[in-house]
Design a binder for these strands. Structure first.
Length: 796
DNA sequence: AGCCTCCTAATTTTT
DNA sequence: TTAGGAGGCT
């Protein structure tokens, strides 16, 4: 069966033949989109037939090549817009590509209808074929919140210990399985069996539940399409025929499901062009398979590999430093970036006593760069960024910048549509559109407070289930039968009546969807709830709600809006004031800044200990790619720093400089040694332990063992830090306590705890102690207590 | 039903 | 340190 007979995007977007003629005449002259391309880029644009892997290093103009390729396909008449499938990962990338193709072709082309993210394209496809996986065309897309709520219910329903099966973990497992294209049916025993097969059972239960709810999660979008393609050759055949040319951006980030989907689609014309950079694969932890890009030539027979290696972004020192770091990775496809721009500043490297000093120093440097330093012209704050490994590192910078009044913005924080009030409002909207949306109902049934607690909700659920109806219908029955007493019952009646009324108003089209939306938020008491809220963020939330309603203006109806929101979750609202950006390294991929600071290069933090523990060498290599991504974001000035001491979860911890610091090639690095730091007496360059470490360490050995703790330079650095530590009373005490706390506790010993006071150890299990305090026996982690004899030395 | 207190865990995050 | 969740108390 097929829905291709419907008026669909293929037909709607078909381009009149006259345009093809126009395209041909355009290309007869010098095609404008080819101008200024270097030979490699040009080859990437003009090699249209067969599989092509465009290996595009950082800053080599891959978006340019990709968009020119689309323009080329269209103007030469090789493909009509609707015969091109172009996939990206983010909406931002999709948008940018649309804009750039548009500007290359002017008014000539309406747009490429199948240009979008993996997910948006899959939604489009799945809406056509939903019934093939037992869904209705109108299926809803769940966000993470809904997903977790659903899983919690499932876990409770199955009477499973939610300590052993936290919903979060289960969500992670299921996500992982979907990323690897495992359905409950195809889930290998090795995966499901690892958890008494309970994982597999819960997965199946979850999928069944989704089906009854007529809902899918993000992973399903891909997975369902892969399933459909595999089970219905006629369906996939149609798409294979239609998509003459396929383009994929950021191929190194594709997961197994995405890979399978692409392979299935490309099997027809085999004209697939994947763009990516194996050195920038940093999403392994969420299912991306670097292997996809490494295997490309094997997967797609007769593939042509084109390397874009000329970099237009960074100075040669920055490129050199990045190359030095990434060289330590194995199994790379291998690219060597070069630039024609010579000179520029070396990458600067500096060590600090602690994280606060690091933030202070960077703040000063930012202000200096604003004024113009070292013969460089002044930079705008918009041209500067601080890229951190983990978001908790941002705090030190925010604190410092607030103190000195430096405007900053955090990129990639909680997004607009993920905020509580927005999700609540959206749940109301969802219910207005469809009363079948049980998850939305659960979310708002007692928001604002209506006196409907667990018990009331349970009653509604029971009634709904036994009658085989939605929760809204169940609630209606409860009201009619007066099953819920008191003010809760009355409020529930009002809510149901309200939902009916708003829905009717929307249908009647007497009011616009915007008016209905406002009405719902007001009449439900939701707006009022925040107006009465005295917490400091309430006004902001009200503003957000206003903004949400305003966003409705761009859509013709609520359905369209909801669809958009489910898939497009960004908020790029940017005020006029110049600001320095603070973001994670992950968030920085694809961006560039003239001035970049890379703080926190300490072993354990970056590379992250957890990443190395969980994924070993693979994890370390991904961390290294992250370092590479970080350095290559910089155009002119790149500054790497590390701190000897850092407060982590309230405890002081000391750390060694990142092993990546040692991998920076000496000739591209300038060591800054401000007064008061490592060996400032005497010659700064030679006294620097970092420099010594770099000079003395053996690259080969490092690459092999990935362990440089034994290099002489590192030892010296450590010693020096320890010495400094002793001269700095506060921090050193903490470190001493830490050191002794880990090892030496015995049963019966008297200890002191900051909170519980004195106690006696009853049992020792690894680093966990059972201690009898005056208030009772507590389990305490060893590092939180000290031997009672040492208590007098406590800094608190 | 709702508030308060205790406990635990703590990268990276798009869709 | 701190945020969020769970469980207990009113």
């Amino acid at each position: 069966m097929s829905t291709f007979d419907d008026a669909d995007a293929f037909e709607a977007a078909a381009v009149p033949l006259s345009q093809r003629a126009m395209g041909a005449s355009l290309s007869a002259r010098a095609a404008p989109y080819l101008e200024g391309l270097n030979p490699a880029q040009r080859e990437a644009v003009e090699t249209l037939d067969g599989p092509v892997l465009m290996l595009a290093g950082a800053g080599t103009g891959k978006t340019r090549a990709l968009t020119a390729r689309i323009a080329h396909l269209l103007t030469t008449g090789r493909a009509r817009p609707n015969e091109i499938l172009a996939v990206t990962f983010t909406n931002k990338a999709a948008r940018e590509m649309k804009v750039r193709v548009g500007s290359l072709l002017g008014e000539a082309v309406e747009g490429v209808p199948w240009l979008g993210t993996f997910h948006s394209i899959c939604v489009k496809q799945l809406r056509r074929h939903a019934e093939l996986v037992g869904l209705k065309t109108s299926f809803t897309i769940l966000d993470t919140d809904d997903q977790l709520r659903l899983l919690k219910q499932l876990i409770a329903l199955e009477n499973i210990d939610d300590k052993r099966w936290p919903a979060r973990m289960l969500a992670g497992l299921i996500d992982g399985w979907k990323n690897r294209a495992f359905t409950p049916e195809t889930l290998p025993a090795s995966e499901a069996g690892a958890y008494d097969n309970m994982g597999g059972k819960l997965y199946a239960g979850y999928q069944a539940r989704l089906k009854t709810l007529n809902a899918v999660d993000f992973g399903d979008l891909l997975l369902h399409m892969v399933t459909i393609f595999q089970q219905h050759p006629d369906v996939v055949a149609q798409y294979q025929r239609w998509f003459k040319y396929i383009l994929v951006d950021e191929y190194q980030d594709t997961n197994v499901a995405q890979y399978m989907w692409l392979r299935l689609l490309a099997a027809g014309h085999k004209n697939i062009c994947c763009v990516g950079d194996d050195d920038q694969s940093i999403y392994g932890w969420r299912g991306a398979e670097v292997g996809n890009i490494l295997r490309f030539e094997k997967d797609f027979e007769g593939a042509k590999v084109i390397k874009l290696e000329q970099n237009y972004r960074s100075t040669e020192h920055i490129l050199g430093a990045a190359a030095g770091v990434i060289a330590a990775n194995k199994g790379r496809l291998g690219k060597t970036l070069f630039t024609e721009e010579k000179g520029g500043e070396k990458v600067r490297l500096i060590g600090h006593w602690d994280g606060e000093e690091e933030a202070r120093w960077i703040g000063d440097e930012v202000e200096a760069a604003q004024r113009g330093t070292r013969g460089l012209q002044p930079f705008s704050l918009n041209d500067m960024a601080i890229l951190v490994r983990a978001s908790h590192q941002m705090r030190a910078f925010e604190d410092r910048f607030l103190t000195i009044g430096l405007p900053y913005k955090v990129i990639g924080g909680p997004r607009f549509y993920e905020r509580l009030e927005i999700r609540d409002a959206m749940a109301y909207f969802r219910l207005i559109v469809s009363q079948d949306d049980d998850l939305a109902f659960e979310r708002i049934v007692n928001t604002p407070k209506r006196g409907l607690g667990d018990k009331a909700v349970q009653t509604i659920q029971q009634v709904a289930r036994s009658n085989g109806v939605s929760l809204v219908e169940g609630a209606r029955l409860c009201v009619e039968a007066s099953l819920i007493k008191g003010k809760g019952g009355k409020a529930l009646g009002e809510l149901v009546a309200g939902l009916d009324r708003w829905h009717a108003q929307l249908r009647a089209e007497e009011d616009t969807h915007i008016q209905v939306a406002e009405m719902a938020l007001d009449e439900s008491g939701y707006t009022e709830m925040w107006q009465n809220d005295k917490s400091p963020d309430a006004p902001g939330r009200l503003d957000n709600l206003k903004e949400l309603v305003k966003a409705l203006e761009q859509f013709d109806n609520l359905q369209g809006f909801l669809e958009h929101i489910a898939l497009v979750m960004d908020n790029d609202s940017d005020g006029g004031e110049e600001k320095i950006s603070i973001m994670t390294l992950h968030a920085a991929k694809g961006l560039e800044f003239p001035v970049v600071f890379l703080p926190g290069w300490e072993d354990g933090l970056f590379p992250s200990q957890r990443s190395m523990d969980e994924s070993g060498l693979k994890g370390l290599e991904e961390e290294r790619r992250l370092a590479y991504v970080g350095i290559t974001r910089a155009e002119e000035l790149c500054t790497i720093s590390f701190a000897g001491n850092r407060r982590v979860y309230g405890q002081w911890q000391n750390a060694l400089p990142s092993r990546f610091v040692d991998e920076l090639p000496e000739e591209h690095v300038e060591i800054l040694t401000p007064p008061g730091l490592y060996g400032h007496q005497g010659n700064a360059a030679t006294a620097s332990p970092v420099m010594s470490a770099m000079a003395e360490s053996d690259l080969q050995e490092k690459a092999a063992s990935a362990n440089v703790y034994n290099s002489p330079g590192w030892r010296r650095l450590q010693e020096r830090q320890a010495q400094r530590g002793l001269s700095q009373p506060r921090e050193s005490k903490n470190m001493v306590i830490d050191a002794q706390a880990v090892s030496s506790f015995t049963v019966g010993e008297r200890v002191f705890h900051q909170k519980f006071g004195y106690g006696r150890i009853e049992a020792v299990e690894g680093d966990k102690l059972d201690i009898a305090f005056s208030t009772g026996v507590k389990k305490v982690v060893a590092k939180f207590v000290v031997s009672a004899d040492a208590a007098g030395d406590l800094p608190f």
